[in-house]
Write a protein that binds this DNA or RNA. Structure first.
Lengths: 248, 248
DNA sequence: CGGTCCTTTGACACAGGTCAAGTAATGTGG
DNA sequence: CCACATTACTTGACCTGTGTCAAAGGACCG
């Protein structure tokens, strides 16, 4: 029996997404059951400690170095996580979407800051309770190890991008990456929707706003993409774009 | 009873490091027991699947995209892990030292290439056997999750470095990072010993050989470091260096 | 409608890359 | 022990991709 079948219908959640049957089944059903369905008792324990939090665009979720009291899972929306240097230079280390975890750390403080980019719904788990659940339910721990290992591989790709790719290669890699992430959540991948500002894109790619903007204009002029509007971009030559992203 | 106390004296290992009592106790004792000592049966199972491998400088350990048949733990020596683009551009994503894991992945192929930088001894675990051990010994899985979470934090710091720091800040950050890693293994941290070439440093920091070399010369000219020889660097003003690394 | 924020575009500057030459360290065969 | 080759590193001169500074247009909002 799949994990989500245990949840009963919730009218409010159904209003926004009829196929969902619990205020927090995204994280419970998609993330937690991906390692093999949880049994009834396990799900009950998860649901018992779960809280739902809604926040608006530009609202902080937590700040770097703040006590890490909660673990989060994005139910809906888009989140950016970033680190700052003393003088304000910013590096965005990731964009998170529904299903993604947030705030996992083995220290007692968060290692980065997190902020919503659009109206966002989060599942929140008090950290101590979450960790004792990990000990009791090895499936969860196995799942988190899989997630961490996947994130580590993505981080290494990003180091390649930041250390060795040109501005053009970075921007194209970024567009394809965002598109792939959208497709994985059953959102349209072409045209790709960018919920973040050019400043966010720049701080993710290690570039300035101006270089991001110029590079997009250049790609458009070369007929490789079409700018439907500022936040929607269509791919005009996917094969060539994939080649550019790979450094070809 | 600490994990290492179960191992019996091994003359060959003792020759190189008198305080070690088993050809592979570094990984077993330092890494595996760090999550709480393993009991006798657990240790026996680990030792039973463990193989020791010795390799020389510049020898490959495995290549990206190759079937991931083994998990490794560095017993002694220094290893670099890197990714390549089609045209040969290289990004080194990490330097590994004794105690560090290597080749952990949830895919069936390695996500990066690995190569020894100096004479290196590795503990090797057949991957399937290692993974079934993980299921049987939750302590191990918990330990690996801790390691992965720590590596993820380091990867985010490296993204900040690659995306937003100047050449000067990168080089200083690098020197302090290598020094800290040496201290953690009870090696001298000042002067710091660099087993890698300038090309490796450049490919780790997203810079060219020439920029690395020039930046070191500049730091030396400013009296911030002393170049004892090409591979040994002493810190002349640690406070100021820490400030530079932090972006101050 | 007037203000604010975001984006684009242009002109120019500079950090770091490229190309090239020279030096030092290490190893090799005679 | 010495030519000689090889590899690693440093330094200089110059170039270029991306950053900086500035201005202007457009979208959104109270």
């Amino acid at each position: 029996m799949p994990a989500s079948s245990r949840f009963t219908v919730n009218a409010q959640a159904q209003h926004h997404a009829p196929h969902l049957v619990h205020p927090c089944d995204t994280c419970a059903a998609r993330e937690f059951s991906a390692c093999g369905p949880l049994d009834a008792a396990e799900q009950d324990r998860l649901v018992a400690i779960m809280q739902t939090v809604e926040i608006g665009p530009h609202e902080p979720i937590f700040d770097e170095a703040e006590p890490a009291n909660f673990v989060f899972n994005v139910k809906d929306g888009a989140v950016k996580v970033y680190k700052l240097l003393a003088d304000g230079r910013r590096q965005i280390t990731g964009f998170l979407w529904s299903g993604d975890f947030l705030g996992l750390t083995h220290n007692d403080t968060y290692a980065y800051s997190a902020e919503a980019m659009s109206p966002t719904v989060l599942c929140r788990f008090p950290r101590q309770k979450f960790e004792s659940l990990l000990t009791d339910i090895p499936k969860l721990e196995r799942r988190l190890l899989g997630i961490a290992s996947h994130e580590l591989a993505a981080a290494q790709d990003q180091m390649m991008l930041l250390g060795r790719k040109s501005a053009r290669e970075r921007v194209v890699s970024f567009l394809l990456m965002i598109s792939d992430a959208a497709v994985r959540r059953n959102h349209p991948g072409d045209p790709v929707f960018l919920p973040m500002t050019r400043a966010d894109v720049g701080d993710y790619l290690g570039l300035t706003i101006e270089t991001v903007s110029r590079t997009l204009s250049q790609l458009k002029a070369q007929g490789l993409i079409r700018l439907i509007d500022e936040k929607r971009i269509a791919f005009a030559n996917l094969d060539e774009l994939r080649g550019i992203a790979a450094g070809g």
